[in-house]
C-alpha cells in the first residue's frame, strides 16, 4: 500500500559496506515508508543478502560509507540486539540451528526483550505459551516444534516457518526477509507467504529479498528494485518483477557495462522505469 504521506521507516542513503576489505555494497539508496512492501531482486552475488545483513548489524560486515536512518535515528549506531528490540527483523536465508537451546525458551526470551523495549510487561512461561500457541496458527506450525532445539533437525520449510513465527511474535516495524522462498516447496511457500501477508499492516513495512518472481505471485510488492554489483540499478512497480521474469537478467550486464563506460557516479542514482 503506497501512501506518499506515510512516515518513512527506513531511509538508506549511499550505503557502502565491505566484508574482509572486499567492497560489496557500493552506494545503495532505498526509502521505505509504513505500509509498503518492497522487493529487492537480483542475481547471486549482487549484494542483496549483504544489504540485509548490514541492516541487521552482522559483525562480519563493515559499513564504509553512507547512512541508514530508522524512524529518523541512525540505525548503524545500534547493536544487532538493539535493532531487533526497536523493531527491525531479519528473516534468515539459512536459519541457524542451535542444539540444546529450546525453541520455546528462545522465542520467549526474544519476545520479552522486544516487549521490554515497547514498555510492555514481561510474559511469564504460562502467558507466553498462550501467545505462542495463538501465533503458531499464522504459519500452521505444529506445537511439537516448540519443544525441540532451535531449528535443530528442522526441514527447510520448517525453518522458514519458524522464522515467520518469530516475526509474528516480535511484531517488527520493518521486516527484512532474506530469500525466504528458497528451499520451499509450493505448499510451504503458500503458508509462509500467507503468514507474511497476514502480518503486513499500514503501520509496518516488509523488504523481500528474492531471486524469483514466484514469491511475488503470492505477496504483491508495491516497489521492486533490481540490484547488481552492489547497487540498485532499477526501481519500479510490481511489473518490473514480471519484466525480469520475461527478459531475465541479461540487460543488467549491458547496463553495468554502460555505467562502467560512463563513469561510476551515474550508477549511484537509481534509474526509474515504468
Amino acid at each position: 500500500m503506497i501512501r506518499p504521506d506515510a512516515p518513512v521507516l527506513l531511509d538508506i542513503r549511499d550505503l557502502q559496506a565491505a566484508v574482509e576489505d572486499q567492497p560489496i555494497l557500493k552506494g545503495v539508496n532505498l526509502t521505505i515508508r509504513a505500509g509498503e512492501i518492497h522487493a529487492v531482486m537480483g542475481r547471486n552475488g549482487s549484494g542483496k543478502s549483504t544489504l540485509s545483513k548490514v541492516l541487521a548489524g552482522h559483525p562480519a560486515y563493515t559499513v564504509t560509507g553512507g547512512r541508514v536512518l530508522y524512524k529518523g535515528e541512525n540505525l548503524l549506531e545500534f547493536d544487532p540486539e538493539q535493532r531487533a528490540c526497536i523493531g527491525l527483523f531479519l528473516g534468515f536465508q539459512y536459519p541457524v540451528e542451535i542444539p540444546g537451546v529450546s525453541n520455546l525458551e528462545f522465542l520467549r526470551v526474544a519476545t520479552n526483550a522486544r516487549r521490554a523495549e515497547q514498555g510492555f510487561e514481561e510474559l511469564d512461561t504460562f502467558a507466553f505459551e498462550d501467545l505462542v500457541r495463538e501465533r503458531l496458527a499464522v504459519v500452521q506450525m505444529d506445537p511439537a516444534f516448540l519443544e525441540r532445539s532451535v531449528n535443530e533437525g528442522f526441514s527447510g520449510g520448517e525453518k522458514k516457518r519458524n522464522e515467520i513465527l518469530q516475526m509474528a511474535l516480535l511484531e517488527p516495524l520493518v521486516a527484512i526477509l532474506d530469500e525466504t522462498d528458497s528451499g520451499l516447496d509450493i505448499d510451504a511457500l503458500r503458508i509462509v507467504a500467507g503468514g507474511v501477508n497476514q502480518l503486513a499492516s499500514p503501520d509496518n513495512a516488509t523488504l523481500l529479498i528474492t531471486h524469483y518472481q514466484r514469491l511475488l505471485d503470492l505477496i504483491t510488492p508495491d516497489h521492486v528494485h533490481v540490484m547488481a554489483a552492489g547497487r540498485i540499478l532499477r526501481s519500479g512497480g510490481k511489473e518490473l518483477a514480471l519484466e525480469l521474469e520475461r527478459t531475465g537478467y541479461d540487460w543488467v550486464d549491458q547496463e553495468l557495462d554502460r555505467l562502467a563506460a560512463g563513469g561510476q557516479e551515474a550508477g549511484r542514482t537509481p534509474v526509474e522505469v515504468g
Partner: peptide, 11 residues
C-alpha cells in the same frame, strides 16, 4: 549462533 540470537533482541 550468537548473531542469530542477537538478531532476535537477545543481548
Amino acid at each position: 549462533e550468537l548473531f542469530y540470537l542477537r538478531s532476535r533482541g537477545i543481548a
